[in-house]
Design a binder for these strands. Sequence first.
DNA 1: CCCATAACGGTACTCCAGTTTCGTTAATCA
DNA 2: TGATTAACGAAACTGGAGTACCGTTATGGG
Lengths: 209, 209
Amino acid sequence: MGAEVAEPGTVRPGGRTARVRTAVLQAAGDTLAERGFAHLDLADIARRAEVGKTTVYRRWGTVTGLVADLLTDMAEQSLPRTESGSLLGDLKANARLVRRTLADPRQGALFKAVIAAAACEEKTAEALHRFYEIRVKEWAPCVQQAIDRGEVPKATDTHEVIRAVSAPLYYRLLTSRDPLDEAAADRAAEAAAAAARAGVYVRSEAGLG
Amino acid sequence: MGAEVAEPGTVRPGGRTARVRTAVLQAAGDTLAERGFAHLDLADIARRAEVGKTTVYRRWGTVTGLVADLLTDMAEQSLPRTESGSLLGDLKANARLVRRTLADPRQGALFKAVIAAAACEEKTAEALHRFYEIRVKEWAPCVQQAIDRGEVPKATDTHEVIRAVSAPLYYRLLTSRDPLDEAAADRAAEAAAAAARAGVYVRSEAGLG
DNA sequence: CCCATAACGGTACTCCAGTTTCGTTAATCA
DNA sequence: TGATTAACGAAACTGGAGTACCGTTATGGG
């Protein structure tokens, strides 16, 4: 009694189910890049993916839900971090990676859409937060190495430095029409490195009492 | 012949027309703060504003259009810039102002909504870009004064410094669940100041050839 | 003050996003 | 390889977002 039915696609994830997911995410990504978030329509996506619209509604439910899954899918294909031997070098590598992603028509549109979706729905927002938490955690070690090398103060908040690199790039993507060029990426990295060296990201002493 | 009919509300903007706009924007802001962007529904807003839904559709047309007008309305009530005598002081004042705005339930929700709307529609995106252009231009003089005082290099891109202050705050608002506290604002200002002093925002030499 | 008409607003309508229903297909397990 | 049933998908349905129509209100100019 009362046994909840599992989400569709979880009990028999193989074969057809996986094929449907691939086709739908592909169609959703295409539509997003071509026509933007506002034109995402589940029935239309079902048509493009050559899949029943009932299926799309059953598995994803809403546009924001679909976008969240698109984000999950993208998170699985993340590129590994490289190491250059200096903080500035590592941060530049990170900044350029972020820039390339946001400047790409397909992925840039996706990120805009995901942010819009996150502003609409709490559940999508959490998926987005988790995504960035993971990304930041992936890159934080390069700041730790800089601490070990003595490049930046010991109590530096490593996560905050990584976030400082991305922030200006996202800000530009969302609030201006200026192109996201490599110079902008390098500047973001340099600013973060300079501020970190100056001790701006040293964790507050509140906890040391 | 062919004389286009002006937008409703432009020929007789007084009295009733203005009252309707006030009521609708008020209702829209309330709904936004209470229920979020996803629940913005023009018919519902008309009900709350005690205004005919036909009127709302005629004057604003879409949710994104209404949100854009809400932004315009807010832009008109901007606070004047203060001066503290040092770059860091001025940037901190700016950062704290931005933080207070974003942390406010009503205005924070509005900004999230506007960004979501801008991701949906090109027209709203332009309104957003214009808004930030104006805001940045308003605060840029404090960087110019810092140049004049010799605090930062002469060729510093003043606008870029102001944007660098806001970026981390918006990034945090959108991608994390961490609170937007005053410490975050101060850190954003300190980072921008440190980077500016280090010459990160010096305009590229490309144009000097 | 009065007129022309801009702007509002109620009602009825349309259309399609999202749901329900139920038969069909195929993934998994023994 | 066959039984079980998860997952798919076609078709019919429904509710409400957005539109059309037209009478009413009241602004702004003379």
